[in-house]
Simulated assay, not measured.
Amino acid sequence: MIWQLDRIRIVLVEPAGPLNVGAAARVMKNMGLRHLVLVNPQCDLQAEEAQRMAVHGDDVLAAAKVVANLPEALVGCERAIATTGRLHRQDQPLELPEVALPWLLPPAPETSFAAALIFGPEDRGLSNDELIYAQRWVRIPASDRYPSLNLAQAVAVCSYLLHRYALAEALEAAFPTVETAAVAGHSASLDQLEGFYRDLEIVLLKIGYLYPHTAASRMAKLRRLLHRSGPDSKELAMLRGILRQVSWAVGKATGQD
C-alpha cells in the first residue's frame, strides 16, 4: 500500500444508490484507498446491489464509517477538497482535479495528518452550505452537452489521479532526482477552524461588523480568506486569543459579562 493514500478519506454525502456506493468501494480498493465515510446515507449499505458492485472491495464497504453530518466526517482533517459539477457565482475558483488533488497528499509520513475528498448526492451535488467546509473546489471537465458525471464515475476519476500522484511521489522518494525542500508544518485541523469560525461570527455580530441577514455571505468570504492562508494550530490559537480579548473589551465597555 502507498502510505500517502492511507491518510485520505473519500466522503460521500447522502448517497442514494447502493450500486454507486458499492462501485465507489470497489474503485477505492483498486486505487489503494480504504477510508470511506458516508454522511447520512439514503440507502442500505448491506443491500445485495452494493455487495455485488463492491466485489473485492467488500472490505472497504464493510469498514465504511457512517456519520450524521459533514463536519463530523471532517473531524481531524487538515485539508479538504469538494467536488462539484456546477459553476458557481461565488468568488471561490473551480480547479482542475489534476491541479488540486496532489494537495491532499500528506507532506510527510506522520499519522496525525488526514485529508478528505468530498462528493455530493447523485441528484443535486453538494450545496453551497456544504461546499464551504472545503478549502478548495474541483470540477471534472466534461462535455457541455452532458457535463454531470455519475457519482461512482467521479470517484473513479479522482481516485485514479490520487493513486497516480501518490505513486509518483513514492518513486521520487525512493529514487530522488532533485533536492527536496523542508517539510512545512501542519495546518490547523478543519474542526479547529470550525470552532474559530463560530467564535468569529459571534464577536463580529457583537461589534456590529456583521448583521444577521448578511452574516452567512460575509462569513463565507472570511472562510475563503482563512482557507487560503492555511494557519497552523498555534496561529489559530493566537487569533482566538484576539477574539477573546475583543469580546472581553466590548463586554466591559457595555457593562455586559
Rank of each mutant, 00 (worst) to 15 (best):
R228G: 15
S112G: 11
L236V: 07
V55M: 08
V66N: 08
G208M: 08
R86M: 14
L101N: 09
A114R: 13
W248Y: 10
M31L: 06
L149K: 08
N40Y: 01
L162N: 05
G32L: 07
Q135V: 02
I2M: 11
T254P: 00
R34D: 10
I8A: 14
L38V: 06
T180S: 06
L101S: 11
P71E: 03
V246I: 15
A73K: 01
V39E: 08
M53W: 06
N69V: 01
G251C: 02
S127Q: 12
E130P: 00
A216R: 11
T111H: 04
D59A: 11
R9E: 07
G85E: 12
P176Q: 00
D129A: 13
P121N: 12
K234L: 14
E130S: 10
A64T: 03
L222I: 13
I132Y: 01
D232Y: 02
A215T: 03
D58F: 04
T180A: 09
L193H: 04
E172H: 12
W3T: 07
M238G: 04
E98V: 13
E122V: 12
R34A: 09
L5A: 10
P109I: 07
Q42E: 13
A134H: 01
L162V: 11
E49C: 01
G241V: 05
V75N: 02
G185F: 00
R198V: 15
V55L: 14
Q192A: 08
L210M: 06
S143T: 14
H35V: 03
Q153G: 06
A152N: 06
M28S: 10
A215C: 04
R223A: 09
V27W: 00
K252A: 15
L117Q: 12
V60L: 02
C43P: 00
A54C: 02
P121R: 12
R52C: 05
L239Q: 03
Q51V: 11
